[in-house]
Write a protein that binds this DNA or RNA. Structure first.
Lengths: 138, 138
DNA sequence: TATTGTTATACTCTATAACTATA
DNA sequence: TATAGTTATAGAGTATAACAATA
């Protein structure tokens, strides 16, 4: 069954693209001294505040895992823990000014790192790709 | 420093797609009792044998990391370590029959898991996407 | 001397299970 | 009782540095 049909090849290409992208993002995060998961958390918290549990659900992780992640990121000054106004059991996680600066630098590095990959496409094909990705993601 | 909105959105979409894909692959791997990195190793070794160092370079990891990864996968019966014919210092890593069966199941699960994402596109757009990904990856 | 791989060590990520404080 | 979060514990992934064997 070494017959790759069209669907298999598309899946392989998607996998390859994703591994390459994650590799680039991992390096970028490491350069800023954070993990890939912390990069995700920073990106998410740029425009909202979330409770520990919601953040965990968002990332598909256990709450106990988030406790540690937030603790380490807070120790680095990137995040801050705040009491939730409506539920005394809950903890809101908020990005700090330092965290926001790091998040912005990460965003810039991401664009820079992925540019060579998208640069192989001419502008028309780039728009095409963007439209296709949007269609898949929504 | 390019602050082109179109480029930023494309990078964001690429990141999002990759995180989703990696999430799906992580679950698939976990269902087979292997890590995401072990899934990659199995996929790579399906059609070749590589030395520890080459495998590490291929994945962008340290050799010491590969030593552990291969040890754990070998303990599970998925890989086997063999002396290299040309260099007595080197160790070839080979996929076992069990490893090959697992690799095939992983491949099938990947296609299944990613199908819903690509299924939102009609066949013509799917071909388009495939062509664009291939252009980016080569 | 340089390279291949291993070992020792340390840290992060992750999950499970038991626990607390609050709802 | 149920839920939000923490703590304790354990295993995997990862890197760095020091090391042995071979080139």
């Amino acid at each position: 069954m070494d017959h790759d049909d069209e669907a298999d090849q598309l899946v392989d290409a998607l996998g390859e693209l994703s591994f390459r992208t994650m590799g680039a993002l991992t390096e970028i995060a490491a350069d800023e001294g954070v993990s890939l998961t912390q990069l995700r958390v920073l990106a998410i918290l740029r425009d909202r505040r979330l409770r520990i549990g919601d953040l965990a659900q968002y990332l598909g992780l256990e709450r106990s895992t988030m406790t540690g992640l937030v603790a380490r990121a807070s120790a680095k000054g990137l995040l801050s823990r705040q009491p939730n106004a409506d539920d005394a059991r809950a903890v809101d996680v908020v990005i700090t000014d330092t965290g926001m600066r790091v998040a912005r630098r990460l965003g810039a590095s991401m664009r820079e790192a992925l540019a060579p990959m998208t640069a192989t496409l001419d502008p028309a094909r780039r728009s095409q790709l963007h439209a296709l990705l949007d269609a898949m993601l929504h």
